[in-house]
Design a protein around this nucleic acid. Structure first.
Lengths: 152, 152
DNA sequence: TTACCTGCAAAGGGTTTGCAGAGTC
DNA sequence: GACTCTGCAAACCCTTTGCAGGTAA
């Protein structure tokens, strides 16, 4: 799925975010940004590290972790905790709010949208006084493929 | 909040579960069960370990982790991943399905219920073919107390 | 008696940190 | 030139595992 914006646009968002925080525009940060822009989908830090090294971009793990955290704070990435010890990210700049289906058998992640969730979120905010900044809705279970495999 | 069932009832559920799995009824398992029955609320493995030791119940960490995992499989506990490296449990036997509000500032966990979520879950199952076995809905944000503190 | 279970301590795996050198502003 | 960032490797933190002794069935 091709993103509906060009790289320069996200880059500008990151630049603004760096400026606001008084941080530097290092080549590593933009190399990582370009890579996640191009690859899309869900990924974790180590996968990204390996992919970058394979591309000949010699960043360290520390930089990858640091940068993913930075991009999350910039609103470019969203982090998910599907399992302990493991942070999964997705590129969420200009992405429609979406939720996740997580297959407990094969680990596959799928997405879905439901406008009713925003209404619920709104109601819960009013009811509880919590100021919600991020919602994470995960339905865990077994994907169709794994259901079929189990039957056999 | 006092549970609406007595200890013997949950104990029986665990006994049935152990029998089905061919596992043993050890004193440690029932000591841990009694403790989490009495304390209620949300907790993690290490908190439980410390509480048990303070009570004079000399279980090991390995046993605590093993037992929490067992109880989760028995359907007595539900596990949550609010942050990485950290599993939070709640006692879910005979508990109404509920969702969580997580304060990103102080870590406080609150609960809420909304029957509309079950409808959404049902619809998503039909639409995607995923067989949902567990749902986790977490609204992250700032609790009313922390909002007040920040203003000051 | 036959596993399974426990306690202890050490290992595991993703993430974070400390430090010296490099690079941005 | 000041200060942050990077790379490397070691440290961290929960959680899991291996092993020898104990114990339920």
């Amino acid at each position: 799925m091709k993103p509906n914006f060009d790289f320069e646009e996200v880059k500008q968002v990151v630049i603004d975010c760096l400026r606001k925080k008084g941080l530097r525009r290092t080549p590593e940060r933009f190399q990582i940004l370009r890579h996640i822009y191009e690859r899309g989908g869900h990924f974790d830090a180590d996968t990204l590290y390996v992919e970058l090294r394979n591309k000949g971009i010699n960043v360290s793990r520390a930089t990858v972790y640091n940068t993913l955290d930075l991009f999350t704070k910039c609103g470019i990435l969203t982090s998910h905790f599907f399992t302990p010890h493991h942070i999964v990210y997705d590129f969420s700049y200009k992405a429609k709010q979406h939720e996740h289906l997580y297959c407990e058998v094969c680990g596959k992640i799928e997405e879905f949208c439901d406008p009713r969730l925003s209404i619920i979120e709104e109601d819960v905010q009013k009811l509880t006084g919590f100021k919600v900044t991020k919602r994470s809705v995960v339905f865990r279970g077994i994907c169709p493929e794994c259901q079929r495999k189990i039957k056999d």
